[in-house]
């Protein structure tokens, strides 16, 4: 029917599956970027150019890097001995299978009434900018405040100051690099 769509979907779903199933956390994070990329391609296929590129910029460029940094900072790149899945994995699997069954059933039930084909919307980046600055200016401002708060919060939470700075004789370099070095040696 629509070969390109199925190819991209298989790409995205495969990436998501690999992200959840792979044992090595760094591999999982890299598979996650494949899923993000596939989803961005789906956005492009839905004529949402701006959202697609924003997706790549934010997720592949920032979130994936953040995840990778967090994995290395928490020694996550070593596969734990006791296994990667929790003891109650069966319940989790059952719940998510149930959720998928319900969602798919609902979509298939509604499929005949869903719109099949519409003309491609003639929306330019200019229109998006105008909408952001007029109709959606309040959400935009709130997002700005939220992002600032999140930035400060993340820094405060992650950069926990000890009462007395711990002294250690390591190679010179800021904290981040010091960690990497110690991890590896």
């Amino acid at each position: 029917m629509d070969f390109v769509f199925y190819l991209i979907s298989a790409f995205a779903v495969g990436g998501a599956l690999a992200a959840v199933l792979l044992k090595n956390l760094v591999h999982a994070a890299l598979a996650l970027t494949i899923a993000f990329f596939g989803l961005a391609l789906l956005f492009l296929r839905l004529d949402a150019q701006f959202a697609g590129f924003a997706q790549i910029l934010v997720y592949v460029g920032a979130v994936a890097i953040l995840v990778v940094f967090a994995i290395l900072l928490t020694k996550g790149s070593e596969v734990p001995k006791e296994g990667v899945f929790s003891k109650s994995w069966f319940a989790g699997l059952a719940i998510s299978a149930g959720v998928f069954a319900v969602l798919a059933w609902a979509v298939l039930q509604a499929a005949p009434s869903l719109p099949n084909e519409t003309a491609a919307p003639a929306v330019t980046v200019n229109d998006i900018g105008n909408a952001l600055m007029s109709r959606y200016v309040l959400p935009l401002e709130i997002i700005a405040v939220l992002l600032t708060a999140a930035l400060l919060g993340a820094v405060i939470v992650a950069m926990h100051e000890k009462a007395g700075p711990k002294q250690s004789a390591g190679a010179p370099g800021p904290s981040l690099l010091g960690t990497g070095e110690r991890r590896n040696s």
Partner: peptide, 19 residues
């Protein structure tokens, strides 16, 4: 239409390959 955004999206993807 979003050429500059595309450029920066691609530029952001190079970071991951370096890692």
């Amino acid at each position: 239409d979003a050429g500059l955004l595309f450029y920066f999206a691609m530029g952001a993807s190079t970071e991951l390959s370096v890692f």
